[in-house]
Design a binder for these strands. Sequence first.
DNA 1: CGAAACAATTAGACAAAGTCCAGATATTAG
DNA 2: CTAATATCTGGACTTTGTCTAATTGTTTCG
Lengths: 136, 136
Amino acid sequence: MPTLLRQHGINPTHQRIEIAYAMFSSHEHLCADQIMTIVNSRYSETSKATVYNTLNLFVEKKLIREVIVDPSKVFYDANTIPHHHFYNVVSGELTDIDSTIEISGLPVLPSGVIAEGIDVIVRIRPQRPEIAEAVA
Amino acid sequence: MPTLLRQHGINPTHQRIEIAYAMFSSHEHLCADQIMTIVNSRYSETSKATVYNTLNLFVEKKLIREVIVDPSKVFYDANTIPHHHFYNVVSGELTDIDSTIEISGLPVLPSGVIAEGIDVIVRIRPQRPEIAEAVA
DNA sequence: CGAAACAATTAGACAAAGTCCAGATATTAG
DNA sequence: CTAATATCTGGACTTTGTCTAATTGTTTCG
């Protein structure tokens, strides 16, 4: 893990290793708050500021990426290989789409800008939302 | 405008008409805060709570739709015809993609869920970000 | 070794978006 | 007119995230 951080130009400190470990061992999409809980679950203490700083640093260094689908919080994805997502608008659950999606008909970019990436989000909801809501 | 609201099952009150008017006369993507400014720019007073309640009501009644691209605020789109967006990650600007985009290779949905819609977001950034940042 | 110099972390104050609530106002029905 | 219902309001509150100033940790190098 320290090697992985160094490969991305990140000085591997204790807290950064813990946070990277949390990100890469969970194969879910976590938000800052969840990371903070995981990292502080044993006994150690990593501050909120450090969790946020570190996640932003990881994004900047392209170790992980942000997924913006929930109006109230950012998800982080340890998988930086281009792929897309299902987002359950009722439960807030975010999952990977495994198949390869082809997009055609993309327009020419406005001049002066370059593309940074394409996000495809398939918004889904339970067939019987009452049930899903009752469970939650 | 009252007719449009009624067609969507919305009781047209003074505030709701003002907010709908703001949404439909601007051909940009506005956020709650901007709507509030517009609606209160003349002399009238519409409270924050009403702006948020009304926008949520409009979304629920499918008069407008939410666009989630910015980690800190929700944009609203008066155009409910399926279409996709450019999002300038540096300036925060959100614009429509005019061309028709075809998506193939979509997976089967997980069982028990139905699709609500598909969002394609092409994230863009200025070629020389330093300049764009300096301007902003 | 020990003292600068620099990097990273921390607690807590702060900011912004959005929700909630209890009371005040409108509106409608009869 | 009055009761019932719908809507609106200010302000307190919550949540996510940022900022800052002080502290701690780590290098460097004489």
